[in-house]
């Protein structure tokens, strides 16, 4: 059996969970197995995960599971794997998944690959691919252990509705006491968080100063995008640190990345080169970013960005 851990946040499931279940259902089908889903703690409408191809949805409750204490969650997942006889565990490559994957793998003595971006090849053993060397190469790995763990890179496949809602079954496993207390969670309200954003508008030092960001925000609003920035811009406090993308910041994989006044240094590209479509606006025809771009506009950004916003608004109306 394939067991997908579907993450919830304040009891709600988000796109990453639907992607993971879709991935699990497709993998299970290729392996000729069932796909079950595990949800932990607060989880509204978990039965709906059946729509994405889960044949069963199991639910475990307990202290430390609403806000996911890593040790408690690991005991829950490993307990479910043993009870259900699962041979493959699928997680999301998210902040939660990254905390849990190593733990779960070590607990189950399982071979593990994180951040995979395509369905496994099950024709000859179990092989998965992921991007390595900061997006400069693709690695294919074979997992040889009886139980395997993989985590799915966000935005690697579209959630697909292929089934129907199912009843949620509760499961009980022995859980340790939580050792970590969550004191505070602050989220930036209103926009899609960068790691989950499908559309991103990003700007760099070419903006000259924080006072000029109005045109970037206008464009982001027209596109419906989340804003990002290059590292020097965050370092100079022109923009908040959580917007910093690249090797030392957030790594993203949106469908569209619009880069404005960013030169395209290799450390910047390391965080964005997996974007599906890249648009670069830069006045320097030699800017390295053009080599990584799908569409380029060589012009002064102060002139061209407002006109791009206008053209998008025209399309949307």
């Amino acid at each position: 059996m394939v067991l997908v851990f579907a993450e919830s946040q304040n009891g709600k499931f988000k796109k990453a969970a639907f992607e993971a279940v879709t991935y699990g259902a497709k993998t299970a089908q290729a392996m000729g197995k069932d796909c079950a889903v595990l949800v932990l703690g607060a989880a509204e409408d978990a039965g709906q995960l059946g729509v994405y191809g889960a044949s069963n949805v199991y639910h475990i409750e307990g202290a430390g599971l609403d806000q996911l204490d890593g040790q408690v969650a690991t005991a829950a997942i490993a307990g479910a794997v043993e009870k259900l006889g699962a041979e493959l565990v699928i997680l999301s490559y998210s902040s939660t998944g990254k905390t849990l994957q190593g733990r779960v793998a070590a607990r189950l003595k399982a071979g593990s690959v994180s951040g995979v971006s395509s369905l496994p090849d099950v024709s000859n053993g179990f092989r998965v691919k992921k991007s390595v060397y900061s997006g400069k190469a693709i690695g294919e790995f074979e997992i040889k252990s009886a139980v395997k763990v993989v985590s799915l890179m966000g935005n690697s496949l579209q959630p697909e509705a292929s089934g129907e809602a199912v009843a949620v079954e509760s499961l009980s496993v022995d859980l340790p006491a939580p050792r970590v207390a969550i004191k505070d969670v602050s989220r930036i309200e209103g926009t899609v968080p960068l790691p989950e954003a499908e559309l991103v508008v990003s700007a760099g030092r070419g903006m000259k100063g924080p006072e000029n960001w109005g045109i970037v925000n206008e464009l982001a609003k027209a596109v419906g995008a989340t804003t990002a920035c290059s590292r020097p811009v965050a370092d100079a406090d022109w923009r908040p640190h959580h917007e910093h993308v690249g090797q030392t910041g957030v790594a993203i994989r949106p469908n569209l990345y619009i880069a404005i006044g960013i030169s395209g240094a290799i450390q910047h590209l390391a965080g964005v080169n997996r974007s599906k479509v890249i648009v670069v606006i830069n006045k320097d025809p030699e800017a390295p970013f053009f080599k990584a771009a799908d569409y380029g506009v060589c012009a002064d950004l102060f002139d061209v960005v407002p006109r791009l916003t206008e053209a998008i608004n025209k399309l949307k109306n």
Partner: peptide
């Protein structure tokens, strides 16, 4: 964490 900061004590 995604789009925010979580503070924990231990």
């Amino acid at each position: 964490i995604e789009g925010g900061i979580e503070t924990v004590s231990l």
